[in-house]
Design a protein around this nucleic acid. Structure first.
Length: 426
RNA sequence: GCGUUGUUGGUGAAGUGGUUAACACAUCGGAUUGUGGUUCCGACACGCGUGGGUUCGAUCCCCACACAGCGCCCCA
């Protein structure tokens, strides 16, 4: 049997509802920040990600889906959302518009990874990016959005870990210092760290295996390589976080896996039963050189991304249900085949009047119809037989009180409006 | 990319080298041709992830592959 490709999934039922309602929730939240929705292509030229995300990152070096199209173009399925938005910003010259420009997106990303629970090869991210603002207030606001969203969802133990990488210059100086420092000690490090030394020396500090190794303790500290501007910026970010009463922990080992970050980087985690190290639900930071690197005018940026599969798994583990209950308001059926046409027209008119209506399409018997109405949790049942057709009335049963009414066909909308009251929305 | 565990119907699952692969839930139909959520009866895997092999015979043993889960790496 044909099956879905590894690391993909079909979303339906409750999961599909969750996605739908999450999107609604995010739309409402984004309005509060006056952020604008963005859609960019699922695939871009491969070069964009090589230049944007960084040649040496794992994401680009071993996780992209690369392909050539029939015109021999080198394309890549987007592994993250920022690069595409930056490309769009430059191509459409959006940087001349309102500064800051706040953008959000929600859609699938692709990474060739080993699948695990809450981690897929095609996965969804909700992301947020701000361009043209280098105020530390914006760093803090971006962090606060994630916090507010998680609190809105009802997650417990939401915590932020932050760090600063300084500007491009301090980051490079620090990197050089680390390389010099670790070079004579390379043999004392684990195999992974030897690779990190080549690819991303900052990550060595993040190593779990070598964390107790004394060489780690004496390693150069980022703080010592920060210039005054960087230090001040970071300090201000923390002041704004304090002002917003957001709890955070400074963790100098946070580096992030994408090369474009400068200054503030952060990860947001929550206490999720049984999640362990997978409790980081969001990550982000500032990237003041990315727009320029991709070929636009020097424009600062800051943003975050949240992986939705892992987030939804967390909600499930915490028994949080964000789906709205949409009950069937009316279930209609005909007593016999003769009234089916009548039912079809009735149902159509009720729907046009804004009611949520389901019906019997198969001319089932009474018992089956009542069972189905119960299963759908229908508020009212409308039964049409020959006598109803003749007298232009409908038999309407309130499925909660079991009371039965004879309603003139012309009065049915008014009757249902009154009965369903505030719960009914047009 | 590495290590490890698993894969029986719509779902939860039991099971054995040998005639019809338990049981439960769900679904559909009937008892009950204009009023139900109870009860009773009936239907429901041409098959035990896929492909090979061992065997007189395999869902059960062996091998490969696929997929899923867990850990590592990495990340959201």
């Amino acid at each position: 049997m044909l099956q879905k490709p590894k690391g993909t999934y079909d979303r339906f039922g409750k999961d599909a509802d969750t996605m739908l309602y999450f999107r609604k929730l995010v739309e409402a939240l984004m309005d509060k920040y006056n952020a604008k929705y963005f859609e960019t292509p699922l695939f871009e030229s491969s070069e964009l990600f090589h230049r944007g995300v960084g040649e040496t990152t794992d994401i680009v070096s071993k996780e992209t889906y690369d392909f050539k199209d029939r015109g021999d173009r080198n394309l890549t399925l987007r592994p993250e959302g920022t690069a595409g938005i930056v490309r769009s910003l430059i191509e459409n010259k959006l940087y001349v518009e309102a500064k800051p420009l706040k953008a959000w997106y929600l859609g699938p990303m692709f990474r060739y990874e080993r699948p695990q629970a809450g981690r897929f090869r095609e996965f969804y991210q909700f992301g947020y990016e701000v361009f043209g603002c280098d105020s530390p207030m914006m760093d803090a606001e971006v962090i606060s959005i994630v916090i507010n969203l998680f609190k809105l969802l009802g997650l417990k133990g939401v915590k932020v870990n932050i760090n600063t990488l300084g500007d491009k210059r301090s980051r490079e100086d620090y990197r050089t210092a680390l390389l010099d420092y670790f070079k004579p000690h390379l043999n004392e490090l684990c195999d992974d760290c030897k690779k990190r030394y080549e690819k991303n020396p900052l990550r060595i500090l993040d190593c779990k295996v070598d964390s107790n190794n004394p060489i780690m303790k004496n390693a150069p500290k980022m703080v010592d390589y920060l210039n005054d501007y960087s230090k001040l910026h970071f300090q201000k970010v923390m002041e704004y976080l304090d002002a917003m009463k957001i709890e955070y922990t400074v963790n100098h080992n946070i580096v992030r896996g994408l090369d474009y970050y400068t200054h503030t980087v952060f990860e947001v985690e929550a206490d999720i039963k049984g999640f362990g190290s997978q409790n980081v639900l969001a990550g982000g930071g500032r990237y003041n050189n990315l727009v320029e690197n991709i070929g636009g005018p020097s424009t600062p940026g800051v943003g975050f991304a949240i992986g939705l599969e892992r987030l939804f798994l967390a909600l499930q583990a915490e028994n949080i249900d964000i789906c709205e209950n949409k009950p069937v308001e009316v279930y209609a059926f005909a007593a016999s085949e003769n009234e089916q046409v009548y039912i079809a027209s009735l149902v159509n008119s009720l729907r046009l009047n804004g009611f949520n209506v389901d019906m019997d399409y198969n001319n089932r018997n009474f018992k089956s119809n009542f069972k189905r109405a119960d299963k759908l949790d229908a508020k009212f049942i409308i039964i049409v037989g020959s006598s109803e057709v003749e007298s232009n009335t409908l038999t309407v049963k309130d499925n909660q009180t079991k009371e039965e009414y004879k309603i003139k066909i012309d009065d049915i909308v008014e009757f249902l409006d009154e009965k369903l009251g505030d719960n009914h929305e047009n």
